[in-house]
Every structure is written in C-alpha cells, then in structure tokens.
C-alpha cells in the first residue's frame, strides 16, 4: 500500500471537512440543530415491526454473489431466512444483542460471538455487528452539524457523530449526509478511532411506504477491502405488520 496515496486522501478529507465546517457555521443558525435532525431521522425510521424481501449482491473483485432473503423484524428482534439455492434454509436470528445462525445441512445452531461478530455477514461488506446494533445513535454519539451539502442531487445536512465518552461503540466517528427534506441518511462514512475511513454506505433508492421514507437500495463499501462492495435491494416491504411472538425463538429457527 502506498503512503503517498493515503496522505493525499487524508488531506482531501480534511479539506472537505474544513469547507463543510465553514458553510455549516453559517447555516446552523437558520435551520435545525444536530439533535433535532437526528430526532427527525429517528422518527422517520421508527418502525414497530416489518416484513419484506431482500436481495444482497456482494462484489469482490470480479466475483459477484447474489443472496436472496426474507426478513421479519419486531423491536430488537429479527429473523432472516435465505432462499437462494446455495444458502437455502440458512437462517439468522437476532434476539436483542445476540445473534444465532442455523445451518440446515448440519442441522446445527451456532451463536455468533466474539471475533466472529467482526466478520462480514455472509461474506458481505456489512459485518455481523453492524446488523446487531440496537441502541439509538443519540445514546452512543454526540452529534454536531457541519453544514449543508449537495449529495445525490439532494440537499443534505452533514452531521458528525463522535462517540460519547465511556460508551462502547464499533465506530469511533461517523459522518452522515441526511436528506434535508426526507430526513433519511443518503450517505454515511464510518471511521476508525485513529480517523481512518473504514466504510461508506450510500442510499441509492428511497421509497415512501405507509407515509415513511425508507431506503430500499443501499450500497456498503468496506474501504479496506479493495474492490469490494455490497448492495442490498429491499422489496415488498410491509411496515407495522402482525408477527407471531414465537417467530423470534431458537425453536422456530430450527423448524
């Protein structure tokens, strides 16, 4: 890896940061505060339960893998069942802060914990712990409004989130571009404690479902995995649906 390339990238990042800060100071007084913006984002995404289908396209170099899944979620719990031939029957169950995986071929149930949580979810650019995060961002981070920027043909608030002291978080710093009208994050950058950019997510399609604006196409890029990205397509999403209570149980996982 070349140092000069890294230095250039870091210099560009700092320069853009400076521009954003300067424009933000001028705008902050006229609009919402960072906390108010995040509260609007939370209000838009606050869903009691949901059911839908998703296709995950994982690109690694020239290789492309497609995985299809059905997803149920309710509160802090979620169940994912894979339907594509290679993974048919594989299921993930998120029970609060715990993640379980069921392999149909081995008829085996595995709890994903420790170092395994840091690996990519089914080989994607989303890590298992990315999928596990339950807590509200405002409990984990202190937000500051850096300004307003053009992003994906929309006006976006640019927010910087830094971990609250004493709170354990995976990413020490995040930068989010929040659509000024829809209050949906259109882009997010996740940083390491030392300031290195780790991941970038981009929302490529937003749909209005039951009065809420929901991202239905998101691409996550793990910057450290050269030539790798994962796009998640969501379809037939139903919000606030009735889901049987016993669906989120280890017994139903093995059914």
């Amino acid at each position: 890896m070349r140092r000069s390339g890294l230095q250039n990238r870091q210099a560009l990042a700092w320069l853009s940061c400076l521009l954003v800060v300067l424009s933000g100071q001028a705008l902050a007084a006229a609009g919402l505060t960072a906390e108010e913006i995040i509260a609007r984002v939370d209000a838009n995404s606050d869903v009691q339960s949901s059911h839908g289908y998703s296709t995950m396209v994982i690109r690694t170099g020239r290789r492309e893998l497609t995985k299809e899944m059905e997803i149920w979620s309710s509160g802090d719990n979620a169940l994912v069942s894979f339907h594509n031939p290679a993974d048919r029957g594989t299921k993930y169950l998120k029970l609060g802060n715990e993640l379980w995986m069921y392999f149909p071929d081995a008829d085996d149930l595995v709890k994903i914990s420790g170092h395994m949580l840091r690996q990519g979810f089914m080989g994607s650019d989303f890590s298992y712990e990315d999928t596990l995060e339950n807590r509200r961002l405002t409990d984990l981070y202190e937000f500051s409004l850096l300004g307003v920027e053009e992003c994906d043909e929309s006006e976006c608030y640019v927010l910087e989130a830094t971990a609250r002291p004493g709170v354990e978080v995976t990413y020490a710093r995040r930068r989010m571009w929040i659509d000024r009208e829809l209050f949906v994050p259109r882009r997010e950058e996740l940083y390491a404690a030392g300031g290195r950019l780790l991941k970038v997510s981009r929302v490529e399609r937003i749909e209005e479902i039951d009065g809420r604006f929901i991202p239905t196409q998101v691409t996550m890029e793990d910057v450290l995995r050269q030539g790798s990205s994962t796009t998640l397509f969501v379809s037939d999403l139903e919000l606030d649906v009735e889901i049987p209570d016993d669906l989120f149980s280890l017994r139903s996982l093995m059914r």
């Binding site: 709170v167 020490a172 404690a193 030392g194 780790l198 450290l224």
Partner: peptide, 13 residues
C-alpha cells in the same frame, strides 16, 4: 484493524 480498549475499531497504517 483491531479494537481499542473501548471496543471501537482502530485501523493502523
């Protein structure tokens, strides 16, 4: 990449 004492990802060049 590793973790700091607080569990945050740390990347070292």
């Amino acid at each position: 990449t590793t973790r700091t004492r607080d569990g945050a990802i740390q990347a070292l060049d």
